[in-house]
């Protein structure tokens, strides 16, 4: 577990250094994810320990959003004046985004299947 955590932190550090060094608008951990992905591709997959540790971490990804989520308590007053347009906007836009993304992907997959170059494992 410690070795795996060290690897994850090293890739995060690398991502952070590159993001800040080049002034990129992407957060360090997201770049770190990209670098680890490339390393895995070169190395032919994660070791057993890295696999197990990341699985544990991702199974409880929800927990990691709790401290930031609780921060809502100090900003709630910002929402007070315009809560109705805000709530409607968030709800409608979130549903619309789910529907549009899913339907566009589904249509594209159907298009690919019809033109005969569909991937074998598409259901």
């Amino acid at each position: 577990m410690i070795a795996a955590l060290t690897q994850l932190l090293l890739f995060q550090l690398l991502g952070e250094v590159v993001a800040r060094g080049l002034g990129l608008p992407v957060p360090g951990p997201v770049l770190g994810m990209l670098f680890l992905f490339l390393a895995l591709a070169l190395r032919g997959g994660p070791g057993h320990e890295l696999q197990a540790t990341s699985q544990n971490l991702l199974q409880h990804l929800s927990l990691l959003f709790v401290p930031a989520g609780t921060g809502i308590m100090i900003h709630l007053h910002r929402v007070a004046d315009e809560w109705l347009p805000l709530l409607l906007s968030l709800a409608i836009s979130t549903v619309a985004t789910l529907v549009v993304t899913a339907l566009v992907m589904k249509l594209c997959m159907r298009g690919e299947a019809a033109s005969g170059n569909a991937p074998g494992d598409a259901p």
């Binding site: 955590l5 994850l8 932190l9 890739f11 995060q12 991502g15 957060p27 360090g28 951990p29 997201v30 770190g32 994810m33 990209l34 680890l36 992905f37 895995l40 591709a41 997959g45 994660p46 890295l50 696999q51 540790t53 990341s54 699985q55 971490l57 991702l58 990804l61 990691l64 959003f65 401290p67 930031a68 566009v104 992907m105 589904k106 594209c108 997959m109 690919e112 991937p119 494992d121 598409a122």
Partner: peptide, 28 residues
Amino acid sequence: HFLLGPATVALAIPLYTQFSRVRALLLP
């Protein structure tokens, strides 16, 4: 909260495991 960083990095692993499916679905 700090663990969000390493957890984001760890997302590379399922992405790698599922990559053949991702590559097959590049256009969609």
